[in-house]
Design a binder for these strands. Structure first.
Length: 308
DNA sequence: AGAGGGATCTTCT
DNA sequence: GAAGATCCCTCTC
């Protein structure tokens, strides 16, 4: 019997049984082996002696204290390393642009702030920019400039640029000369209070608190909420202590991904219409919903299951 | 809910 | 000098 999409968008995220994806083989978040405390501290001391120039995110914190006052090693250097065993690596990013744009849907973007707090968000909307032939890409014509150099670097390199003088957009370079994936929206998971602060701090007056789904529902909003700026340009997402990708617990199946035209591409001729934007159907955090495309594709997606 | 316009400044031609 | 992979506020229906 063929696998069939369930009637709710959430249920459709489950891949067919028996199909393993690369990230299924990676260690699940939270289930890693914790080094015994004493050994941990010894190793930490040795590491500090060996290495005198730790990056801020590598500096071992004091023991974290939970709301009940119990200490836990959540912010220790070794917890970070254990956590990063579930970090998506260079091999993952080494795939064609469209493939990567779809593949990152459902994965978790993690941002570790200098004070040790971690922000998490599920990627729910992306766009593919294919490189030289793509008239809407910053790398159209194969032109390399100081701004877009990251698009030509190895897959997994971040390309962060400023737009309209005040905002930032964040891309991940993929396979293909000058190709990259724009992250357009996230569903906030951890650190929503921090995101709220970061988002409202750049507004004037006493702004109303944003709804959760409004925190990261746009390419520049997610950069604000995750405190991502030009400093992050050309960083390696596969190997950076302040930002990385973790495999998501549920990945949308083919039917749960809506494919439509990219946003804000005004004067790029036929390339403006190409179906190079991808988002998770039914997710509240998607920046712009294409109702027409959703109507046209819903029949094959949301067949009611006969009762009795 | 949707349309329209202003803000703001880097990048490239 | 013009354009831009955006956001937010205001106005209208």
């Amino acid at each position: 019997m063929a696998w069939r999409a369930a009637s709710s968008p959430q249920a459709a995220f489950c891949p067919p049984r028996g199909i393993l994806r690369p990230w299924d083989l990676l260690t699940a978040r939270g289930s890693t082996w914790i080094m015994p405390r004493k050994k941990n501290q010894l190793a930490h001391l040795n590491a500090v002696q060996r290495k005198s120039t730790l990056l801020p995110a590598e500096i071992p914190g004091t023991l974290a204290v939970d709301p009940d006052g119990n200490a836990s090693p959540l912010s220790s250097k070794y917890f970070i390393i254990e956590k990063n065993t579930s970090q998506l690596g260079s091999d993952y990013f080494n795939q064609p642009c469209i493939s990567l744009a779809k593949s990152v849907l459902g994965q978790i973007l993690v941002r570790k702030l200098p004070d040790g707090r971690e922000l998490r968000g599920k990627i729910v909307e992306t766009e593919a920019y294919l490189g030289g032939e793509d008239e809407a890409s910053h790398s159209k014509g194969g032109k390399q400039t100081p701004r877009n150099a990251a698009m030509f670097m190895k897959p997994g390199t971040l390309y962060v640029y400023q737009i309209y003088g005040i905002y930032f957009c964040m891309n991940i370079s993929s396979q293909g000369e000058g190709a990259a994936v724009l992250l357009r929206s996230l569903e906030p998971l951890d650190g929503l209070d921090v995101m709220q602060q970061l988002r409202s701090s750049q507004k004037k007056g006493q702004p109303k608190p944003l709804k959760d789904w409004q925190l990261c529902n746009g390419p520049s909003k997610l950069c604000q909420a995750f405190d991502i700026n030009k400093d992050f340009d050309q960083r390696d997402l596969a190997q950076n202590p302040a930002i990385w990708l973790e495999p998501g617990p549920e990945v949308p199946g083919e039917q749960a991904v809506v494919t439509t035209a990219r946003i804000g591409i005004g004067c790029s001729g036929e390339w403006a219409q190409k179906p190079l934007r991808f988002y998770i159907r039914g997710n509240r955090c998607v920046s712009i919903v294409d109702k027409r495309v959703e109507r046209e594709t819903e029949c094959s997606y949301d067949l009611p299951v006969a009762q009795g």
